[in-house]
Design a protein around this nucleic acid. Structure first.
Lengths: 153, 153
DNA sequence: CGATAATAATTTACATAGAAATTATTCATA
DNA sequence: TATGAATAATTTCTATGTAAATTATTATCG
């Protein structure tokens, strides 16, 4: 079979393909440390910001609280984080690093390795531009979604 | 809380954020038609290429066969596709459109609507460039992954 | 002040994804 | 041509994601 399939000129499709390649790469790098990408993301948020609520962790990762709540559960079992009650708001939970989680702080820089690998074919200007384009597209998507909710489509 | 959180300058993170916004947008557009993104993707592949094997569908979508096998199962139950045995290779399965799946062909163009929404803030040149950059990044990731397997890291 | 609305987290239900193992079939080659 | 390697699909297991419902707590406002 010489020619490949017909595929649409779809930004959504290309976004998914690139993201899935990126995520596979990160998973590979994290494998020796027994960390999933989702877990690394939580640790990274804590390394950079200190203690955070589940809501904040979810915001940073860009997904819904239930997903984050479960990841934190697993990380608790794995001894990577600690959970305590927020003193000022008893609804809220404070998630912080355990000693074990703190000791992995050197893994923070993995995202830089990934940047280097993914951006290898691009010039510094193109790389910078790419990041900005991704951000524009994300904002355009979110803006449309927010408006579609107002209109109650 | 005036200032947002500290987040890494991570291409992987920005890819995930943009992709998740895009996917949420598509899901919203497909909702009235009772289709998931995964199902639309299978239909789109069939609309553009005619009958395909599970392996081919998985390749086009860019994921592993088990995922595709399951989606096809659900679509069979929903009457969107038909399954038959490949005449030349009895291991292979041929997935084709049912009448119901054929009747949804007008939904093929949804990806163009999504392109318009996501690329709205960009000029045509920037849009074209963005698509190429996504492709470069995907290839860089896949190349690295393939090499890491040879080296048996 | 007290009723109602909003918020934080979790639970449940369901869809999706990958890896590994399994089965059936085909290919390659000695 | 017979046997071992490769391939196509599926099943099982585990991890992850969203949406909706639930619980507990806090905020708002008449």
């Amino acid at each position: 079979m010489k020619y490949k399939y017909n595929t649409p000129y779809s930004i959504g499709r290309q976004l998914n393909l690139a993201t899935s390649a990126s995520n596979a790469l990160v998973s590979k790098l994290l494998e020796p440390h027994d960390l999933s990408l989702a877990q690394w993301t939580v640790l990274s948020s804590l390394w950079q910001n200190g203690e955070l609520s589940v809501k904040s962790l979810a915001e940073i990762k860009g997904n819904a609280p239930p997903a984050t709540s479960r990841i934190v559960d697993r990380m608790l079992s794995g001894g990577l984080v600690e959970r305590s009650q927020n003193r000022h708001d008893r609804r809220a939970v404070t998630v912080g690093l355990s000693q074990k989680g703190e000791d992995l702080r050197h893994l923070q820089s993995i995202y830089e390795e990934v940047n280097v690998i993914l951006l290898e074919p691009l010039s510094p200007e193109e790389s910078e531009n790419f990041f900005k384009l991704l951000n524009s597209v994300e904002q355009a998507g979110r803006t449309w979604l927010a408006q579609s909710k107002v209109g109650d489509d």
